[in-house]
């Protein structure tokens, strides 16, 4: 089961890789719920930040990959830290900014160490109790899989549309790109819908 080449998953043999996906998601959930409490002590949050870096070590990587996960957020994090430092003191700045860092880094770690398909299977299993509320877990899985499949399909269409645009020396406006992309995607959806029916999804 390797959908990995599409996702952020990085293969490995570390203890974190070998943990069942359900357990990892549970730890993450507990961590998120506990953050309401841990946020009261800045030193505890600081310790958790250090622990999150160590968790990346344990998974076989270093502080660089840890930072890669946080880099897109650095401006917002800096802004939050500065505002808190000015309005409520540096302890609050450490606690609140640090909590975001811990949660984002740990959630990213789950993603990095768990293959996409394993997560889909876990979600389908977790959705089982929802059957009584009219949720069909198998349907959920089907949606996720068809969705995963459509990403490269539409990306391929986008590439073709872009090439056609260049070939015709059309303008590079967003609209001139997106209209044909959406129209071709809708046609592709018609064909895919027909294929789903032919292969037994007729409701």
């Amino acid at each position: 089961m390797r959908t990995s080449s599409l996702g952020l998953f990085r293969p490995g043999q570390s203890p974190i890789h070998r943990l069942p996906p359900g357990t990892k998601l549970l730890v993450l959930l507990v961590l998120g719920a506990a953050s309401v409490v841990t946020q009261r002590w800045w030193w505890l949050v600081a310790a958790l930040v250090v622990a999150s870096v160590l968790a990346y070590r344990l998974a076989g990587w270093g502080v660089r990959l840890w930072w890669t996960q946080l880099r897109p957020l650095w401006m917002l994090l800096a802004f939050t830290a500065v505002v808190h430092a000015l309005t409520s003191g540096w302890q609050r700045a450490v606690a609140d900014t640090g909590t975001i860092v811990v949660l984002v880094a740990c959630a990213a770690l789950v993603t990095l160490t768990t293959p996409t398909t394993a997560l889909v299977d876990t979600i389908v299993r977790m959705a089982a109790p929802l059957t009584r509320f009219g949720v069909d877990p198998e349907r959920v899985g089907l949606f996720l899989m068809v969705g995963i499949r459509c990403v490269p399909l539409v990306a391929g269409l986008a590439e073709q549309v872009r090439e056609a645009q260049i070939a015709r020396r059309a303008t590079t406006s967003t609209r001139a790109f997106v209209v044909p992309l959406v129209v071709r995607s809708l046609r592709e959806a018609d064909a895919l819908g027909e294929a789903l029916v032919a292969r037994g999804i007729d409701d």
């Binding site: 089907l142 949606f143 068809v146 969705g147 499949r149 459509c150 990403v151 399909l153 539409v154 990306a155 992309l181 959406v182 995607s185 809708l186 592709e188 959806a189 018609d190 895919l192 819908g193 789903l196 999804i201």
Partner: peptide, 10 residues
């Protein structure tokens, strides 16, 4: 299903 999946991909 196909339209939903395709628009997620868009």
């Amino acid at each position: 299903i196909a339209i939903i999946a395709v628009f997620a991909a868009i």
